[in-house]
């Protein structure tokens, strides 16, 4: 499988002149293959957003390298690499550039000199993929947070990226907005096999990923499939993260003397175990 992203021993500090300054990212390495979905989780200030900025060349590491699509990211190939990536940020308002939905989706296309006829097609298609194609002429102030984030995703998709980075794209949304956005991403993954890196502090969201990287204090605290990572249980809670609902409930049931299989992460699996316990009673 093609390796599309490769971080090698990346270090970054916002205060390079201060010898005692804290590294926001401190020696992080990991690889990503085409078609993978990786969740980078950690509490606020764990270095996860800095990591996202390093991946797309908004920041350059003081030590280590960031590899994208086979090359090391440099000032020279920055724009070419960026044209193959999309990024959606936290605040739905502050990334809406266009006057209307369609203008905003077209923005990256205009920047990359895509001809007009092609643009209209791509804008339509991208908006269809996020189910916002009936909102072409809507202005941002008349959209909900979830809708704006879906438009931002469409803006990234229109460029047909090989990698989509979501930098806490759901953290400012209400539960409904979050659900809309997650449903769209799940749908995209299934239909297009898009590679996704999602930076989040929501472990329920991380559950959906193929692989989870847990950040703490600028370092990689753990890495593995959601199963492997969530088995650390308590250790994650201590980092200020919240275990998935099913795991919290399992722990509470354990206190009541009801044993469930360790590492039961979904509600479905948990309820099935409880039904079995009940019929064996």
């Amino acid at each position: 499988m093609e390796r599309i992203l490769s971080l090698q021993d990346v270090r970054f500090t916002y205060t390079p002149d201060d010898p005692d300054g804290r590294h926001a990212v401190d020696g992080v390495s990991f690889d990503m293959h085409a078609g993978e979905w990786i969740a980078v989780v950690g509490h606020n200030g764990s270095g996860k957003s800095t990591l996202a900025r390093l991946m797309i060349g908004l920041l350059f590491p003081q030590e280590g390298t960031v590899g994208l699509f086979g090359d090391t990211l440099t000032e020279d190939n920055l724009w070419e690499k960026r044209s193959q990536m999309g990024m959606v940020f936290q605040n739905p308002d502050n990334q809406f550039v266009g006057a209307t939905v369609q203008d905003d989706v077209a923005f990256a296309l205009e920047n990359n000199g895509i001809p007009f006829e092609e643009m209209t097609l791509r804008v339509q298609n991208a908006l269809k993929q996020v189910k916002m194609d009936t909102f072409l002429d809507h202005e941002p102030q008349h959209l909900s947070g979830g809708q704006k984030q879906r438009v931002a995703i469409a803006g990234a998709l229109a460029l047909r990226p090989r990698l989509l980075i979501l930098d806490e794209a759901t953290s400012m949304l209400d539960p409904q907005g979050r659900e809309e956005v997650i449903r769209v991403i799940l749908d995209l993954r299934e239909k297009t096999g898009l590679s996704v890196i999602s930076i989040t502090h929501d472990l329920e969201e991380a559950l959906l990923a193929d692989r989870v990287v847990v950040m703490n204090g600028g370092r990689k605290f753990a890495e593995g499939t959601p199963q492997e990572v969530f088995l650390k249980g308590e250790a994650l809670t201590e980092l200020g993260l919240d275990l998935p609902f099913a795991m919290r409930l399992s722990a509470l049931l354990g206190e009541q003397g009801i044993g469930t299989e360790p590492g039961t992460m979904t509600e479905r699996k948990l309820v099935e175990q409880l039904w079995t316990l009940r019929s064996n009673r």
């Binding site: 203008d103 296309l109 205009e110 209209t120």
Partner: peptide, 26 residues
């Protein structure tokens, strides 16, 4: 704060000034 966020979002979406841009609004 908004201006800063917006500038970053524009940069990530490949904005480098008017040179070589096409127009969506005809």
């Amino acid at each position: 704060k908004r201006a800063e966020d917006l500038a970053v979002a524009m940069e990530v979406r490949g904005y480098r000034g008017g040179e070589g841009r096409t127009r969506y609004r005809q």
